[in-house]
């Protein structure tokens, strides 16, 4: 428990709401299991006392901003959450002047599930390359010098498998998918009014829970996050059948980083990697 952060969050929330800088403050409170945390929307200064911040605050709250487009809203953002906000700014989904970002210099969160606070650091926090949010209006904690580079050890391990083993691996993973779309619902990048998977005409992936349809869904979901996934682990955390979705997302993140030296969510003014090109790049096609 980091009481210092909690107190700072409460104090800032109170101040912002009292001075009417914002109409809504999105943060975390203790869940009813009294162990884990859950999102909290605060509208009145006196409610700010319910706010907490500790290492069980796993949720990426940025997605709630999409429902608050017309309301001046403050949001508590860990570095990965702030990257999501940057992507939403890149994609014209939120307006900078409507949001107030409470950046947290993040100590990392733990793999907590309902009824268990957890002790193990979450997968995204192991070797996290960024502890200070890339964008904030108010920062809690001392900014850090970022040195670590993402080693992509998880992705590399996959790449080292044989083709047949990889295909078998994914077949095994995807066959568990129950198509609940929790991954989609939690993802700040998944905001299409109509998702391709829900279309009947053309039918990209049928509604059946079947290998082909599951394969289409999971891969295209990942591909649609190309150059956009900010590595918050949300999809993987909420997957009820534990499909390692971040392995897909991070493979693409690695490719984009290598080919275009682009990390999503770092620069609110950046142009998405698929929205631009350089003439002198990728000279030899797929050789």
């Amino acid at each position: 428990m980091d009481d210092k952060i909690t107190l700072a969050v409460r104090e800032k929330a109170k101040e912002l709401l009292e001075q009417k800088v914002v109409d809504c403050f999105i943060g975390y409170e203790k869940a009813t299991d009294n162990l884990t945390s859950r999102p909290l929307f605060v509208y009145k200064p006196e409610q700010a006392e319910r706010l907490v911040f500790d290492n069980t605050c796993v949720h990426n709250l940025s997605k709630y901003l999409l429902n608050k487009k017309d309301t001046k809203t403050a949001v508590v953002a860990k570095p990965c959450d702030a990257r999501a906000i940057v992507v939403l700014l890149n994609e014209n989904q939120v307006q900078r002047e409507k949001i107030y970002i409470i950046g947290i210099v993040c100590p990392g969160v733990v793999d907590s599930r309902w009824g268990s606070a957890g002790t193990e650091p979450e997968v995204r926090c192991q070797g996290c390359p960024q502890h200070t949010p890339p964008l904030y209006d108010f920062l809690i904690g001392e900014p850090t010098d970022e040195v670590e580079q993402d080693a992509y050890t998880d992705v590399t391990a996959m790449e080292e498998m044989g083709d047949a083993d990889r295909e078998a691996f994914w077949k095994e993973q995807f066959q568990r998918c129950i198509r609940c779309y929790a991954c989609r619902n939690v993802c700040p990048g998944c905001y299409c009014p109509v998702c391709f998977v829900d279309l009947k005409e053309p039918l990209w992936a049928g509604i059946r829970v079947a290998p082909g349809e599951n394969w289409m869904w999971n891969n295209i979901r990942a591909f649609h996050l190309l150059g956009r996934c900010i590595d918050c682990n949300g999809c993987q955390r909420v997957c009820p059948v534990n499909i390692p979705l971040m392995l897909l997302n991070r493979k693409l993140k690695k490719e984009v980083a290598q080919a275009f030296a682009f990390i999503p969510g770092m620069d609110p003014k950046a142009l998405a990697p698929l929205a631009t090109f350089k003439k002198e790049e990728l000279a030899e096609p797929s050789k």
């Binding site: 994609e91 014209n92 989904q93 905001y191 299409c192 009014p193 109509v194 142009l271 998405a272 698929l274 929205a275 631009t276």
Partner: peptide, 10 residues
């Protein structure tokens, strides 16, 4: 269906 993400216009 348009999200207004600007990609096509870019």
């Amino acid at each position: 269906r348009c999200t207004g993400c600007l990609l096509c216009s870019q």
